[in-house]
Computed example of a mutant assay.
Amino acid sequence: MTGTISFYLSLIPLLSSIFATTVTSNPIARRAEPAAKPGFNRIWYEDWGHKNGITHNWVFDLGTSYPGQVAQWGTGEIQTYTNKTENIKIVNKVLWITPKKLKDAKGKITWTSGRIESRRGSQWACPDGKKLLVEASIKLGSAGEAQQKGIWPAFWMLGDVFRGQGYKGWPEVGEIDIMESVNGMRQTWGLVHCGIYDGQIPIRGPCNEPDGKGGFIKGIGRGLWHTYGIEIDRTSKNWKTEKITWIINGVRRHSVTGAQINNATAWDFLAHKKMFVLLNVAVGGGFPNGVEPGNALTPFSTTIDGDSVGMQVDWVGVWQQA
């Protein structure tokens, strides 16, 4: 979710260059507690039941950029993030993030939405020789694709050094996109970003920036609960054979290894250093534009707002191998 507009505009060739798998397991038909994880200890958990609500474990990202940093969150998205309940709220212990479309007296349309990140102090690294799991139970909006052009929900992580540097240093700080989906499509992406990208030369560095490395998964049912997660596995104690694996409903989908990144420093940021979690629904920008024919600018006139194009989150958890 963090990066340059050209990153997302370049995703069309990515669709054919990274492998895809199809979800064949049954989706979660109702809200459910996390599955038992033998051999793991839960070290952080959010089920939206705290008396302090969202701010118990999270901070709001507001406006159109981090303070003093790249406009439109670096991706060309057009919404303004707020902490208003029309955009982000808790209902019956479920987080709802809802994009809203506004029209002024002159007919100009603007969008608002919600974005949060785990509080400082809530960031995690996988210890050497162990595994780390990060998962969330998420339901994506069930409206048709024509009504969701430009809608871009995401569950992802950024290297905590990004905050320490004043929200500077992408993609060197490392990014793991656990789940991204655009335009109401029945598929999600799972990618990593790392190394250096100066916005000038496409496809460079250990993570092939601005594309990133990873895969996409087809057949994701909308309007149903799915558990999305990643496992960082450092049990080999050799950075080249360590791996990050994307998991949906308990089924492993695709992985990226240290050897595939082939850069010890970049892999260190991705798999060894602390990361924090983000949840948001963006509107417009390079990614949803880039998967449309001719890189058409989204959202379209057919794009609607409201809960049927938003994202619901039942729980988020972090587990570490005992």
Rank of each mutant, 00 (worst) to 15 (best):
279 L>Y: 00
126 C>P: 06
209 E>M: 14
111 W>M: 03
39 G>L: 03
153 P>N: 07
301 S>Y: 11
143 A>C: 09
108 K>A: 11
17 S>D: 14
148 Q>K: 08
288 P>F: 01
205 G>P: 02
311 M>E: 05
88 I>F: 06
226 H>Y: 00
205 G>W: 03
54 I>S: 02
185 M>Y: 14
178 I>F: 01
210 P>D: 04
217 I>C: 03
71 A>I: 10
148 Q>L: 03
43 I>W: 06
103 K>V: 15
9 L>S: 09
143 A>E: 13
149 K>R: 14
133 L>W: 11
6 S>L: 12
144 G>W: 07
113 S>Y: 01
51 K>F: 14
131 K>M: 12
114 G>D: 06
173 V>F: 08
305 D>Y: 00
161 V>A: 13
246 W>F: 02
73 W>G: 00
303 T>L: 09
251 V>Q: 13
130 K>R: 13
56 H>P: 00
295 N>C: 04
119 R>K: 15
277 V>T: 11
13 P>V: 09
289 N>K: 10
222 R>Y: 03
262 N>W: 08
175 E>Y: 05
196 I>W: 13
69 Q>A: 13
274 K>M: 00
233 D>I: 05
149 K>D: 10
71 A>H: 10
233 D>W: 01
174 G>P: 04
194 C>D: 10
13 P>S: 09
50 H>P: 05
172 E>D: 14
50 H>L: 12
47 D>H: 08
171 P>A: 06
263 N>M: 06
66 Y>T: 00
86 E>A: 14
164 G>I: 07
319 W>C: 06
213 K>N: 09
269 F>A: 12
312 Q>S: 11
134 V>D: 03
322 A>P: 09
169 G>F: 07
98 T>P: 01
256 V>K: 06
128 D>T: 14
179 M>F: 10
60 F>G: 03
209 E>W: 01
21 T>F: 09
81 Y>Q: 07
48 W>A: 01
306 G>A: 12
61 D>S: 07
237 K>R: 15
36 A>D: 12
72 Q>Y: 14
52 N>F: 11
86 E>L: 11
106 K>P: 01
258 G>V: 05
273 K>P: 08
198 D>C: 08
17 S>T: 13
92 N>K: 14
233 D>A: 02
289 N>Q: 13
47 D>V: 01
187 Q>V: 04
156 W>V: 00
57 N>I: 02
37 K>M: 15
200 Q>Y: 12
225 W>C: 04
53 G>S: 12
262 N>Q: 10
104 D>V: 07
196 I>V: 15
185 M>A: 15
178 I>T: 07
67 P>M: 11
190 G>P: 04
291 V>A: 03
154 A>M: 09
196 I>P: 01
249 N>C: 06
205 G>F: 02
305 D>G: 13
81 Y>K: 04
192 V>M: 10
279 L>P: 05
44 W>I: 07
225 W>R: 04
164 G>F: 09
65 S>Q: 14
36 A>L: 11
96 W>G: 02
265 T>Q: 14
161 V>N: 10
68 G>S: 05
135 E>K: 14
200 Q>M: 13
